[in-house]
């Protein structure tokens, strides 16, 4: 069984963090979350990290692996070589609580402001007969609110008031299927220097998204819609 070298960022707020190396013996079929959990279980019980579902559904285990945003639970160890250390650091642009743990509540509060329900119409059932008693197939939204896109966004690095890719994508989702939400208020939120117009199209959000959300395209669609709205107001506004 190979031994992997994990370099984890360790420390608590108030002291300067450092990278520490931990050898972990695991088969190549295992995942990074297994390695970190094993370090916690067998080597250092003080290690702080977030995790829950281990299958990319909860969005809790986002970290930076060799600098890049990943979910630990779907990052297989076979991607790496046992000879080279795997560097694991907490996400950026969130308040740091210690080790690999960050406080995601600022993002969650912003998502709560959008308030789109996590349930959507199931596109798979749109053209199919549904079982009796079910009027409409439902499924969860793709976004798992893991915060990887926020950590990867270079605008987020600078502008703490930027709504951020996840929230903008949520607003775009809501716009395309408003259900009972107050669309006007949310679109006003997006139509702001710190909203959809702040994006510099670095495309990193879509590049790191583990859940098919594609925030960059969503921001683009949102902008197209906002521009069309403006044109409508300027030229055909009479109606």
């Amino acid at each position: 069984m190979p031994t992997w070298q994990l370099r984890l960022l360790r420390g608590r707020p108030g002291s300067s963090p450092r990278l520490e190396t931990y050898p972990v013996e695991l088969p190549a079929e295992a995942y990074l979350i297994d390695a970190v959990e094993k370090i916690w279980a067998e080597q250092d019980r003080s290690l702080l990290f977030r995790h829950a579902c281990h299958h990319a559904s909860c969005g809790a285990c986002g970290v930076r692996v060799n600098g890049r945003e990943r979910l630990m639970c779907i990052t297989p160890l076979r991607e790496f070589s046992p000879d080279r250390p795997i560097r694991v650091e907490p996400l950026r642009h969130f308040p740091w609580l210690g080790d690999l743990l960050v406080d995601v509540s600022p993002m969650m509060r912003r998502m709560a402001e959008v308030g789109f329900a996590i349930i959507r119409r199931d596109e798979l059932t749109a053209d199919r007969p549904l079982p009796e008693g079910i009027e409409q197939g439902t499924r969860f939204e793709d976004c798992i609110e893991c915060g990887l896109c926020l950590s990867a966004c270079p605008v987020m690095a600078a502008d703490e008031d930027y709504l951020g890719p996840a929230t903008l994508a949520a607003i775009e989702r809501m716009r395309s299927e408003p259900r009972d939400r107050d669309a006007a208020r949310l679109l006003a939120l997006a139509d702001d220097p710190h909203g959809a117009w702040r994006c510099h199209s670095a495309m990193e959000c879509t590049a790191v998204c583990p859940s098919n959300v594609d925030p960059a395209s969503a921001i683009g669609r949102l902008r197209r819609w906002l521009i069309a709205e403006k044109l409508r107001r300027w030229f055909g506004g009479g109606r």
Partner: peptide, 14 residues
């Protein structure tokens, strides 16, 4: 201005 906005300036400074 887009670059200076990244300095995290407030609405007044802006």
């Amino acid at each position: 201005r887009a670059i200076v906005l990244d300095l995290g300036i407030g609405p007044g400074t802006d």
